[in-house]
Amino acid sequence: MADEVIDKAAAKDRVKRKKAVKDRWWAVAFIAPSFLLVAVFVYGFIGWTGYVSLSNWNSLTPDFSFAGLANYIYLFQDFRFQADLRNTLFFTLLFIGFVIVSGLGLAVLIDQKLKAETLFRNIFLFPMALSFVVTGVVWQWLLNPSTGYNTFLAFFGIQPLWYTDTTILGGFQWGSIEFGLPVAIIALVIAAVWQMTGFSLAMYLAGLRGIPEELREAARVDGASEWKVYMKVVIPLLLPITVSVVIIMAHISLKIFDLVYAMTGSGANFVTDVPGVYMFETTFRANYYANGAAIAMVMLILVAVFIVPYLLANRRREG
Protein backbone atom coordinates (compact mmCIF):
# COMPACT_ATOMS: atom_id res chain seq x y z
CA MET A 1 0.00 0.00 0.00
CA ALA A 2 2.70 2.39 1.11
CA ASP A 3 4.88 1.38 -1.82
CA GLU A 4 2.08 2.05 -4.15
CA VAL A 5 1.73 5.59 -2.81
CA ILE A 6 5.44 6.21 -3.22
CA ASP A 7 5.37 4.84 -6.76
CA LYS A 8 2.49 7.06 -7.62
CA ALA A 9 4.24 10.07 -6.19
CA ALA A 10 7.41 9.25 -8.10
CA ALA A 11 5.46 8.82 -11.31
CA LYS A 12 3.79 12.16 -10.77
CA ASP A 13 7.16 13.72 -10.15
CA ARG A 14 8.56 12.24 -13.35
CA VAL A 15 5.65 13.58 -15.34
CA LYS A 16 6.13 16.97 -13.77
CA ARG A 17 9.83 16.99 -14.57
CA LYS A 18 9.15 15.89 -18.11
CA LYS A 19 6.63 18.67 -18.41
CA ALA A 20 9.14 21.16 -17.02
CA VAL A 21 11.71 20.13 -19.62
CA LYS A 22 9.11 20.36 -22.34
CA ASP A 23 8.07 23.78 -21.08
CA ARG A 24 11.63 24.98 -21.16
CA TRP A 25 11.92 23.99 -24.81
CA TRP A 26 8.71 25.81 -25.56
CA ALA A 27 10.02 28.85 -23.73
CA VAL A 28 13.21 28.84 -25.76
CA ALA A 29 11.25 28.36 -28.96
CA PHE A 30 9.04 31.30 -28.18
CA ILE A 31 11.80 33.63 -27.07
CA ALA A 32 14.16 32.78 -29.90
CA PRO A 33 12.47 34.90 -32.63
CA SER A 34 12.40 38.10 -30.63
CA PHE A 35 15.84 37.38 -29.24
CA LEU A 36 17.20 37.00 -32.75
CA LEU A 37 15.43 40.10 -34.01
CA VAL A 38 16.72 42.18 -31.13
CA ALA A 39 20.20 40.74 -31.56
CA VAL A 40 20.28 41.69 -35.23
CA PHE A 41 18.22 44.86 -35.42
CA VAL A 42 19.31 46.45 -32.14
CA TYR A 43 22.71 45.17 -31.13
CA GLY A 44 23.82 44.21 -34.62
CA PHE A 45 23.14 47.70 -35.89
CA ILE A 46 24.77 49.33 -32.88
CA GLY A 47 27.85 47.31 -33.76
CA TRP A 48 27.54 48.34 -37.39
CA THR A 49 27.25 52.01 -36.42
CA GLY A 50 30.35 51.65 -34.27
CA TYR A 51 32.18 50.09 -37.23
CA VAL A 52 31.09 52.88 -39.60
CA SER A 53 32.18 55.51 -37.06
CA LEU A 54 35.74 54.19 -37.33
CA SER A 55 35.73 54.30 -41.14
CA ASN A 56 36.34 56.93 -43.80
CA TRP A 57 32.80 56.77 -45.20
CA ASN A 58 32.21 60.50 -45.52
CA SER A 59 30.52 60.74 -48.92
CA LEU A 60 27.83 58.94 -50.86
CA THR A 61 30.34 56.33 -51.94
CA PRO A 62 30.90 53.86 -49.09
CA ASP A 63 34.51 53.69 -47.97
CA PHE A 64 35.17 51.30 -45.11
CA SER A 65 38.90 51.87 -44.82
CA PHE A 66 39.94 52.25 -41.20
CA ALA A 67 40.11 55.83 -39.98
CA GLY A 68 40.86 55.18 -36.35
CA LEU A 69 39.37 57.78 -34.08
CA ALA A 70 39.62 60.54 -36.70
CA ASN A 71 35.86 61.11 -36.75
CA TYR A 72 35.72 61.40 -32.97
CA ILE A 73 38.70 63.73 -32.84
CA TYR A 74 37.07 65.92 -35.47
CA LEU A 75 33.89 66.06 -33.43
CA PHE A 76 35.47 67.04 -30.17
CA GLN A 77 37.34 69.87 -31.90
CA ASP A 78 34.23 71.04 -33.68
CA PHE A 79 32.55 74.22 -32.48
CA ARG A 80 29.11 72.84 -33.16
CA PHE A 81 29.62 69.58 -31.32
CA GLN A 82 31.12 71.29 -28.31
CA ALA A 83 28.12 73.59 -28.26
CA ASP A 84 25.85 70.51 -28.51
CA LEU A 85 27.43 68.89 -25.48
CA ARG A 86 27.09 72.11 -23.50
CA ASN A 87 23.45 72.47 -24.53
CA THR A 88 22.68 68.84 -23.70
CA LEU A 89 24.24 69.19 -20.25
CA PHE A 90 22.23 72.26 -19.31
CA PHE A 91 19.07 71.04 -20.96
CA THR A 92 19.27 67.74 -19.09
CA LEU A 93 19.95 69.34 -15.71
CA LEU A 94 17.16 71.90 -15.99
CA PHE A 95 14.70 69.51 -17.60
CA ILE A 96 15.09 66.75 -15.01
CA GLY A 97 15.14 69.21 -12.13
CA PHE A 98 11.92 70.92 -13.16
CA VAL A 99 10.13 67.73 -14.11
CA ILE A 100 10.83 66.29 -10.65
CA VAL A 101 9.90 69.42 -8.73
CA SER A 102 6.74 70.19 -10.66
CA GLY A 103 5.67 66.53 -10.89
CA LEU A 104 6.12 65.99 -7.17
CA GLY A 105 4.45 69.29 -6.32
CA LEU A 106 1.39 68.54 -8.43
CA ALA A 107 1.21 64.95 -7.17
CA VAL A 108 1.19 66.17 -3.57
CA LEU A 109 -1.56 68.66 -4.39
CA ILE A 110 -3.69 66.07 -6.14
CA ASP A 111 -3.09 63.63 -3.28
CA GLN A 112 -4.96 65.97 -0.89
CA LYS A 113 -8.23 64.11 -1.59
CA LEU A 114 -9.45 66.66 -4.08
CA LYS A 115 -13.00 66.51 -5.37
CA ALA A 116 -12.11 66.79 -9.04
CA GLU A 117 -9.04 64.62 -8.76
CA THR A 118 -9.66 62.71 -11.98
CA LEU A 119 -10.22 65.92 -13.88
CA PHE A 120 -6.94 67.45 -12.73
CA ARG A 121 -5.04 64.24 -13.23
CA ASN A 122 -6.25 64.11 -16.81
CA ILE A 123 -5.49 67.76 -17.44
CA PHE A 124 -1.91 67.30 -16.27
CA LEU A 125 -1.49 64.00 -18.08
CA PHE A 126 -2.92 65.30 -21.33
CA PRO A 127 0.28 66.87 -22.77
CA MET A 128 1.89 63.42 -22.57
CA ALA A 129 -0.55 62.21 -25.18
CA LEU A 130 0.92 64.62 -27.70
CA SER A 131 4.04 63.97 -29.67
CA PHE A 132 7.06 66.19 -29.20
CA VAL A 133 6.55 67.48 -32.73
CA VAL A 134 3.14 68.91 -31.84
CA THR A 135 4.52 70.38 -28.65
CA GLY A 136 7.40 71.88 -30.59
CA VAL A 137 5.20 73.54 -33.19
CA VAL A 138 2.86 75.00 -30.55
CA TRP A 139 5.60 76.32 -28.28
CA GLN A 140 7.52 77.68 -31.25
CA TRP A 141 4.72 80.23 -31.56
CA LEU A 142 4.06 80.71 -27.85
CA LEU A 143 7.70 81.51 -27.12
CA ASN A 144 8.29 83.44 -30.33
CA PRO A 145 9.98 86.81 -29.80
CA SER A 146 7.39 88.64 -31.90
CA THR A 147 4.15 86.76 -31.08
CA GLY A 148 2.79 84.48 -28.37
CA TYR A 149 3.51 85.34 -24.75
CA ASN A 150 5.44 88.42 -25.76
CA THR A 151 2.29 90.20 -26.94
CA PHE A 152 1.04 89.77 -23.37
CA LEU A 153 4.35 90.54 -21.69
CA ALA A 154 4.54 93.76 -23.69
CA PHE A 155 2.10 95.26 -21.14
CA PHE A 156 4.82 94.96 -18.54
CA GLY A 157 7.51 96.20 -20.87
CA ILE A 158 9.36 92.86 -20.98
CA GLN A 159 10.25 91.35 -24.33
CA PRO A 160 12.37 88.25 -23.82
CA LEU A 161 13.95 86.90 -26.99
CA TRP A 162 13.27 83.32 -25.87
CA TYR A 163 14.88 80.77 -28.14
CA THR A 164 16.48 83.37 -30.37
CA ASP A 165 18.50 84.79 -27.46
CA THR A 166 22.19 84.11 -28.08
CA THR A 167 23.35 85.10 -24.60
CA ILE A 168 25.33 82.53 -22.64
CA LEU A 169 24.81 83.13 -18.91
CA GLY A 170 27.99 82.97 -16.83
CA GLY A 171 29.87 82.27 -20.01
CA PHE A 172 33.61 81.81 -20.23
CA GLN A 173 35.76 80.65 -23.14
CA TRP A 174 36.35 76.91 -23.05
CA GLY A 175 37.68 75.10 -26.08
CA SER A 176 36.20 76.88 -29.07
CA ILE A 177 32.90 77.67 -27.36
CA GLU A 178 31.63 79.90 -24.62
CA PHE A 179 30.68 77.61 -21.75
CA GLY A 180 27.70 78.59 -19.64
CA LEU A 181 23.92 78.40 -19.63
CA PRO A 182 22.51 79.29 -23.07
CA VAL A 183 19.41 81.40 -22.40
CA ALA A 184 17.70 80.00 -25.50
CA ILE A 185 17.73 76.52 -23.95
CA ILE A 186 15.25 77.74 -21.32
CA ALA A 187 12.53 77.98 -23.96
CA LEU A 188 13.13 74.35 -24.90
CA VAL A 189 13.13 73.34 -21.25
CA ILE A 190 9.75 75.02 -20.72
CA ALA A 191 8.21 73.10 -23.60
CA ALA A 192 9.75 69.78 -22.57
CA VAL A 193 8.76 70.20 -18.92
CA TRP A 194 5.23 71.11 -19.96
CA GLN A 195 5.03 67.87 -21.87
CA MET A 196 6.70 65.47 -19.45
CA THR A 197 5.50 66.74 -16.04
CA GLY A 198 2.38 64.59 -16.37
CA PHE A 199 4.58 61.52 -16.45
CA SER A 200 6.43 62.26 -13.23
CA LEU A 201 3.14 63.36 -11.69
CA ALA A 202 1.63 59.94 -12.42
CA MET A 203 4.68 58.15 -11.06
CA TYR A 204 4.75 60.21 -7.88
CA LEU A 205 1.02 59.93 -7.37
CA ALA A 206 1.28 56.15 -7.52
CA GLY A 207 4.19 56.33 -5.11
CA LEU A 208 2.30 58.54 -2.68
CA ARG A 209 -0.66 56.17 -2.72
CA GLY A 210 1.72 53.34 -1.93
CA ILE A 211 2.93 54.90 1.31
CA PRO A 212 0.86 53.46 4.19
CA GLU A 213 -1.14 56.04 6.07
CA GLU A 214 0.14 54.55 9.35
CA LEU A 215 3.65 55.83 8.69
CA ARG A 216 2.42 59.39 8.35
CA GLU A 217 0.14 58.92 11.37
CA ALA A 218 3.05 57.69 13.45
CA ALA A 219 5.10 60.72 12.51
CA ARG A 220 2.24 63.02 13.34
CA VAL A 221 1.76 61.32 16.72
CA ASP A 222 5.46 61.96 17.36
CA GLY A 223 4.68 65.63 16.90
CA ALA A 224 5.97 66.20 13.34
CA SER A 225 4.44 69.08 11.41
CA GLU A 226 2.92 68.33 7.96
CA TRP A 227 6.02 69.87 6.36
CA LYS A 228 8.27 67.57 8.38
CA VAL A 229 6.11 64.57 7.53
CA TYR A 230 6.81 65.23 3.86
CA MET A 231 10.47 66.10 4.27
CA LYS A 232 11.39 63.28 6.65
CA VAL A 233 8.97 60.48 5.78
CA VAL A 234 7.22 60.82 2.43
CA ILE A 235 9.98 62.16 0.18
CA PRO A 236 12.65 59.73 1.41
CA LEU A 237 10.22 56.87 0.79
CA LEU A 238 9.72 58.16 -2.75
CA LEU A 239 13.41 57.84 -3.56
CA PRO A 240 13.08 54.74 -5.80
CA ILE A 241 10.44 56.61 -7.82
CA THR A 242 12.73 59.61 -8.14
CA VAL A 243 15.51 57.38 -9.42
CA SER A 244 13.20 55.90 -12.06
CA VAL A 245 12.01 59.36 -13.11
CA VAL A 246 15.60 60.61 -13.42
CA ILE A 247 16.60 57.63 -15.54
CA ILE A 248 13.63 57.87 -17.87
CA MET A 249 13.90 61.64 -18.25
CA ALA A 250 17.66 61.46 -18.74
CA HIS A 251 17.37 59.08 -21.64
CA ILE A 252 14.67 61.23 -23.25
CA SER A 253 16.72 64.36 -22.78
CA LEU A 254 20.03 62.96 -24.02
CA LYS A 255 18.43 61.60 -27.18
CA ILE A 256 16.10 64.52 -27.83
CA PHE A 257 15.63 65.39 -31.49
CA ASP A 258 12.00 65.91 -32.48
CA LEU A 259 11.19 68.73 -30.06
CA VAL A 260 14.26 70.73 -31.06
CA TYR A 261 13.85 70.02 -34.76
CA ALA A 262 10.21 71.12 -34.76
CA MET A 263 10.54 74.05 -32.38
CA THR A 264 13.82 75.91 -32.77
CA GLY A 265 16.15 74.13 -35.13
CA SER A 266 19.85 74.56 -34.44
CA GLY A 267 19.41 78.16 -33.41
CA ALA A 268 21.63 81.16 -34.04
CA ASN A 269 25.22 80.30 -33.11
CA PHE A 270 23.94 76.77 -32.31
CA VAL A 271 22.48 77.81 -28.96
CA THR A 272 19.67 75.28 -29.22
CA ASP A 273 21.45 72.59 -31.21
CA VAL A 274 21.64 69.06 -29.80
CA PRO A 275 23.60 65.98 -30.90
CA GLY A 276 20.47 64.39 -32.39
CA VAL A 277 19.91 67.26 -34.82
CA TYR A 278 23.60 67.44 -35.67
CA MET A 279 23.67 63.71 -36.34
CA PHE A 280 20.68 63.94 -38.67
CA GLU A 281 22.11 66.84 -40.66
CA THR A 282 25.60 65.39 -40.83
CA THR A 283 24.41 62.00 -41.98
CA PHE A 284 21.51 62.76 -44.26
CA ARG A 285 22.19 66.27 -45.47
CA ALA A 286 25.97 66.38 -45.68
CA ASN A 287 26.35 62.63 -46.38
CA TYR A 288 29.14 62.35 -43.80
CA TYR A 289 28.11 58.88 -42.71
CA ALA A 290 31.14 58.14 -40.54
CA ASN A 291 30.89 61.47 -38.74
CA GLY A 292 27.20 60.92 -38.15
CA ALA A 293 27.87 57.42 -36.81
CA ALA A 294 30.45 58.86 -34.43
CA ILE A 295 27.87 61.32 -33.08
CA ALA A 296 25.46 58.42 -32.61
CA MET A 297 28.06 56.46 -30.67
CA VAL A 298 28.79 59.41 -28.39
CA MET A 299 25.06 59.70 -27.71
CA LEU A 300 24.89 55.99 -26.94
CA ILE A 301 27.74 56.30 -24.47
CA LEU A 302 26.10 59.28 -22.78
CA VAL A 303 22.86 57.35 -22.33
CA ALA A 304 24.72 54.24 -21.19
CA VAL A 305 26.41 56.22 -18.44
CA PHE A 306 22.96 56.72 -16.95
CA ILE A 307 21.24 53.47 -17.79
CA VAL A 308 23.85 50.80 -17.14
CA PRO A 309 24.39 51.52 -13.41
CA TYR A 310 20.62 51.59 -13.01
CA LEU A 311 20.17 48.22 -14.70
CA LEU A 312 23.00 46.70 -12.69
CA ALA A 313 21.55 47.99 -9.43
CA ASN A 314 18.15 46.60 -10.39
CA ARG A 315 19.63 43.21 -11.17
CA ARG A 316 21.43 43.09 -7.87
CA ARG A 317 18.23 43.96 -6.03
CA GLU A 318 16.27 41.28 -7.85
CA GLY A 319 19.04 38.68 -7.58
Binding site: N58, S59, F79, R80, T166, S266, A268, N269, F270, E281, T282, R285, A286, N287, Y288
Partner: peptide, 16 residues
Amino acid sequence: EGFVTKANQAVNIFVT
Protein backbone atom coordinates in the same frame (compact mmCIF):
# COMPACT_ATOMS: atom_id res chain seq x y z
CA GLU B 1 26.27 68.86 -50.00
CA GLY B 2 29.00 68.26 -47.45
CA PHE B 3 30.58 71.61 -48.13
CA VAL B 4 27.23 73.36 -48.26
CA THR B 5 26.36 72.00 -44.82
CA LYS B 6 29.66 73.22 -43.42
CA ALA B 7 29.28 76.58 -45.15
CA ASN B 8 25.83 76.95 -43.61
CA GLN B 9 27.29 76.17 -40.19
CA ALA B 10 30.05 78.75 -40.62
CA VAL B 11 27.52 81.35 -41.78
CA ASN B 12 25.25 80.55 -38.83
CA ILE B 13 28.10 81.21 -36.42
CA PHE B 14 29.06 84.39 -38.29
CA VAL B 15 25.55 85.83 -38.12
CA THR B 16 25.85 85.89 -34.31
